[in-house]
Amino acid sequence: MRVALYVTCLVDLMRPSVGFAALRLLEAAGCEVLVPEGQTCCGQPAWSAGERALAAELAKKAIGELEGYDTVVIPSGSCADQIRNIYPQLLADDAAWSARARALAERAYELTAFLADVLQVSAVPAAFDGSVTYHDSCKGLRSLGIKRQPRALLAKVPGLTLKEMSECEECCGFGGAFSVKFGDVSTKIVDRKCESIAAAGADAVVGGDLGCLMNIEGRLRRRGDETTRVLHIAEVLAGGGT
């Protein structure tokens, strides 16, 4: 299967290892993985801010780049939601684009959903010595229904034990621009997440969206927690190295 990897702008700039981990995972599952050249950002920040016209422009750009592949895989619930749910809505009244948006939406998957539901992988390349707790990011959970998939995949990692935190479905307070615009409120919210994580007592906190993970890691460190590792699920499933 030819798969296009859409790494997301945040992974590109802030944590390339997530992109390489996703690449390795998909290749290990037997996919031919291509990284479309011109990809930049899916346009979600513009959409969220109410900048509809700019969001539509970027949506069209992404559709043009991605529609030539059998499947598009995205290591982020919120960017996957943008392509799967928002693009068709955003371009619904655009005669030239609405069908193309819908066609792409049907073939775009969040990484764990693709591995667990579409490929139904039976093994993952990783080994992990320790315990992890999983944070359900909001868009993945409530817009895409991703809950079971990451856990099913983590269960396949030899040596890994899952220690669920209480309130794993609670928002971490990231929210994109919200985290900067309302920094003190965002910090208050992530504080509670940090407490849940601490109470779970796992070696690492794992999630599927880099934005949430940077928020959690940033706050954990500021609170003085230097040991709890903060990892993207792709990094855990694909094992070490970049």
């Binding site: 900067v180 920094g183 890691e217």
Partner: peptide, 15 residues
């Protein structure tokens, strides 16, 4: 607004 309450983790110097 971000760094008032949190660090900003940066992983490496290449995209």
């Amino acid at each position: 607004g971000w760094t008032a309450g949190r660090d900003l983790p940066v992983a490496g110097n290449r995209t």
